[in-house]
Amino acid sequence: MKTPQPSKNREKRTKSERLEARLTSVQKELLQHAAEIEGTTITDFVVRSAQAQARRVIEEHTRLQLSLEDSQAFVEALLNPPEPNARMIAAAAEYKRANASK
């Protein structure tokens, strides 16, 4: 799943949505201080930080989802293995020949 990443120019032209949040004075001071360190406004800092965290959450969810699907496929292959093909039979025979004298 690819996360949407609009270009900066398009983002500036189409900013029409609003997000409001209630903060404690301590939270606001923390965000303001961080924004000042980065030389940006508190709004830009919060939006950029929220976008970065949103991307991390989506990526993590995608990795976990794929990991779960891979695990299920692995267990399915263990419980219901496919019939060996000619190449696998030949490899097993070669392995037995190579290890017969050991």
Rank of each mutant, 00 (worst) to 15 (best):
E20P: 00
L23Y: 04
T24E: 10
T24F: 01
S25L: 13
V26L: 15
V26I: 14
V26F: 14
K28L: 06
E29W: 01
L30F: 10
L31V: 10
H33L: 05
A34T: 10
E36A: 13
I37N: 13
I37E: 15
I37K: 15
I37C: 09
E38G: 08
G39S: 08
G39P: 04
T41H: 04
I42K: 00
T43K: 12
S49N: 07
A50Q: 05
Q51D: 09
A52K: 11
A52H: 12
A52D: 09
A54P: 01
R55D: 10
R56C: 08
I58P: 00
E59R: 10
E60M: 08
H61N: 14
R63C: 07
R63K: 12
L64I: 06
Q65S: 12
L66F: 09
L66N: 15
S67D: 08
L68D: 11
L68S: 09
D70F: 06
S71G: 12
S71V: 04
Q72A: 04
V75L: 15
V75Q: 12
A77N: 11
A77G: 10
A77F: 04
L78H: 06
L78Y: 11
L79G: 03
L79A: 05
P82C: 06
P82G: 04
P82F: 05
E83N: 07
E83C: 05
